[in-house]
Design a protein around this nucleic acid. Structure first.
Lengths: 190, 190
DNA sequence: TAATCTCTTGTTAAAGATAACAAAATATAA
DNA sequence: TTATATTTTGTTATCTTTAACAAGAGATTA
C-alpha cells in the first residue's frame, strides 16, 4: 500500500472537479478510509494550494477570483520567497516545499530523503531550471538573499561570465551541498 | 445597544494588528462576550476580507502584501513588460508610460519633452532605481529583452563586474541615448 | 402607551477538527 | 533472511465550529 496516497490525492481533486464540493464524510466513504485520513489529505492539498478547506469538506480554489496568494514563505528560514531566487523541492509522496533561494533550498533538500525533483530560477534569465543540472555560484560578492550567496545558472558559460565580475566558486549541485556541509562543520550556525 | 457591534469589530482588528493572531476564547474574554458572538464577528470580518479565520481564532490576511503581478505592455514595442527590466516614464502632466526595458524606455523618453521622472529596475537586485542616475551596460552578450541589449544597474561597481563577464560598454543615461541615436543613423531600423 | 418587529446575543446539542498515541504497512539496513 | 526505521493509517479524547432556538434590547407603528 505504498502509493495509495498519491492515487487518492489525485482522485480527490478529480472528484472536486466534477462535484465542485465534497465533504470529509463523503470522501472517507468513497475511498474506504477513515475521516482522519481524509483530513490529512485535505490538509496537504490545501497547504499546496490545490483546494480550499472548508468546515466539513473542501472546494476548488478561486472560483470567482479571490485574491490568490502567490507569495510563498521559505520553509527553511521563513521569509517570503522572491520569484527571482525561489527554490522548489518536490517529494516522492507529492508534497512540495519552497525555499527563498538555493542556499535554503539545497539545505532543505539535503536533509530529506525522497526528493523527486527540484527546481530553481536562472538568476540571469528568470527561467525555471532543473536544480540538479544547474550551476551554482557560491560565495560571490553579490548578496541578494541568504549568506553565503548561492546563485543559480542554467548555462555554465553564463555562470563563468558572472563569476568573472563577482567572484565565488562555480559548483554543481552535489559539490554545493558538500561545500555547505563543510561550512556548517567549521562554524556552528546556519 | 445598536452600535456595540461596530465598536467591537474595529477593536478586534486593532487587536490583531498588535497581536498578529488571536483566539476566539481570548477575544471573548477580552470583550466580555460569549464565544458565539466572537464567532459571528469573525465570520463577518472574514467574509469582507478583513481577516483570515483559522481554526480556533483569526489572523490578518496577507501580512507581507500580495505580490500582485501587474502586467503592462510596452508602449514602444508592445510586448509585455517584465518586472525584471521594466522602464517607467512619468510626465509632467501626470501621465505615465511603460516600456519593456531600458532599450525601449530610453527611446521613448528621448522623444517626449516633458519628462518629470523615469524609473527602471536594477538588473542584479530587482530594486527600482532612478533612470537618470543609473548605469547602462550597452551591447553586452546577454540578450534578455531587446537588441542591442541595455541593462540597468544602480551601482557602477556592480555594473563593471557584470561587464567583465558579459562585455559591452558602460554608459550613463545621456551617453546611452546618444549612442542609440548614432546606431539609428547608421542603420535605419529600430 | 402597548404591541410588534428587527437585531444582537446567549445557550445548547450535534457535527467537525485537531493532537497524541498506537497499530499496521512499507522501506531500509545489517 | 531478520531486524530496525520510517511512513501511513486508525482510534480516542478534547477542543472548535456550526445550526437552531430562545431571550433581551431598541426601534417602529398603531
Amino acid at each position: 500500500m505504498a502509493t495509495t496516497f498519491l492515487d487518492r490525492e489525485q482522485k480527490i481533486l478529480e472528484h472536486l472537479k466534477t462535484h465542485k464540493t465534497a465533504s470529509v464524510q463523503e470522501l472517507a466513504e468513497v475511498f474506504g478510509v477513515s475521516n482522519m485520513t481524509i483530513h490529512r489529505d485535505l490538509h496537504k492539498l490545501a497547504n499546496s494550494g490545490h483546494l480550499l478547506k472548508k468546515h466539513g469538506g473542501a472546494t476548488l480554489p478561486n472560483p470567482g477570483g479571490k485574491a490568490q496568494e502567490e507569495t510563498s514563505l521559505c520553509a527553511m528560514c521563513g521569509k517570503t520567497a522572491s520569484q527571482r531566487t525561489i527554490f522548489i523541492v518536490k517529494f516522492d509522496n507529492g508534497e512540495e516545499m519552497r525555499a527563498c533561494c538555493a542556499h535554503c533550498g539545497l539545505m532543505m533538500q539535503s536533509r530529506k530523503k525522497k526528493v523527486w525533483q527540484s527546481l530553481t530560477v536562472d538568476y540571469l534569465y528568470g527561467h525555471m531550471i532543473s536544480a540538479g543540472q544547474a550551476f551554482y555560484l557560491v560565495g560571490s560578492v553579490l548578496n541578494i538573499c541568504c549568506v553565503p550567496s548561492i546563485l543559480a545558472f542554467g548555462s555554465k558559460t553564463d555562470a563563468e561570465k558572472f563569476r568573472k565580475g563577482f567572484g565565488g566558486q562555480l559548483l554543481d549541485m552535489e559539490e554545493t551541498i558538500h561545500h555547505m556541509h563543510r561550512m556548517m562543520h567549521m562554524h556552528s550556525d546556519m
